[in-house]
Write a protein that binds this DNA or RNA. Sequence first.
DNA 1: ATTCAAATGCTACAATGTTGCATCAAAAGC
DNA 2: GCTTTTGATGCAACATTGTAGCATTTGAAT
Lengths: 166, 166
Amino acid sequence: MLHQKPAHDQTAMPDYAPHSHPHPSARDLIAAHGGRVTRTRIAVIETLQAAQHPLSHDEIGAALAAADIAHDRVTLYRALDWLVEQGIAQRIAGGERAWRFEIRHDGAHRHAHFHCDRCGQILCLEEVPTETSPALPAGFELDRTELVLHGACADCGRQGAKAGTR
Amino acid sequence: MLHQKPAHDQTAMPDYAPHSHPHPSARDLIAAHGGRVTRTRIAVIETLQAAQHPLSHDEIGAALAAADIAHDRVTLYRALDWLVEQGIAQRIAGGERAWRFEIRHDGAHRHAHFHCDRCGQILCLEEVPTETSPALPAGFELDRTELVLHGACADCGRQGAKAGTR
DNA sequence: ATTCAAATGCTACAATGTTGCATCAAAAGC
DNA sequence: GCTTTTGATGCAACATTGTAGCATTTGAAT
Ligand SMILES: [Mn+2]
Ligand SMILES: [Mn+2]
Ligand SMILES: [Zn+2]
Ligand SMILES: [Zn+2]
């Protein structure tokens, strides 16, 4: 239930702008998709909207706790499942075998991510668009493309040049 | 310990060509990296070399079992860890929160993957190169890029057009 | 205020991966 | 070949991440 990496600590909803474009109100989003407007869903959406990088279930849970919003693990999993089903959020297979979530951007605003294979940090690369569709085998339908750049972040690169790849 | 998807069943080392280019001998590869040549490592490498798509720990374990190579779960995890550390194999964050592994191709032969979000199938897209490096923040080092196309495979697309996104 | 499906909160469980430590065996030295 | 050394293995116990079932609560429609 606790953060392992105090570096990315990102608890209660911050006040800086998210991905540099405005976001619709959480209540409206939920209602527009025919869901019930609950404290948990509102807080999850607002947390994701405010985040500068995709958040893990654990990180989102910490944000809810910091905002004094009672919830249990399973409820949060289900809220996230619902957001993904609705296309409001998307799952990203970040490194550490735990999903990460972020608001799903449409068309122009989609972007790639950088994943540090040493410390696990994930960074949104706003400038790098995810490449558009190449030829797929017959019958295959493309939904979205995910581009992840792997390597070492500035912090990890500086120290131990030859640490574990993992 | 059993396969869930008989469709991708890929047990004992098959005899067809892998990614359509030849592979170095497993023993040589291991020795060249200063590791001990053990049955487990040899079999894991040969299994990966023969595979047409990235394999999960479970699938590789099944292949070892089919080849009558005794091993335990942890040993296999460690063999795979070692291959990744050495840069012989690479981990791919396939959907189902389980790593998938494949031989790491160099330069020209790197390719993208297609992931079916309905049935979980993963396909190597030999023709689609992973895009080359864009601008990264100062100090960041790029190791490799991972391009995953998400959508529905031919089988899944045909049936239920509007199933679960997940 | 009443109604009722949609969300929630437990508890119990499954799947995937990790750690510690005793034992085994690959390969190097003799 | 025999011994030695240390990397690799096997086993047991544990951690993390995510799911399923079911009783209870609550959003929102009437
Ligand atoms: Mn992002
Ligand atoms: Mn591949
Ligand atoms: Zn890092
Ligand atoms: Zn499919």
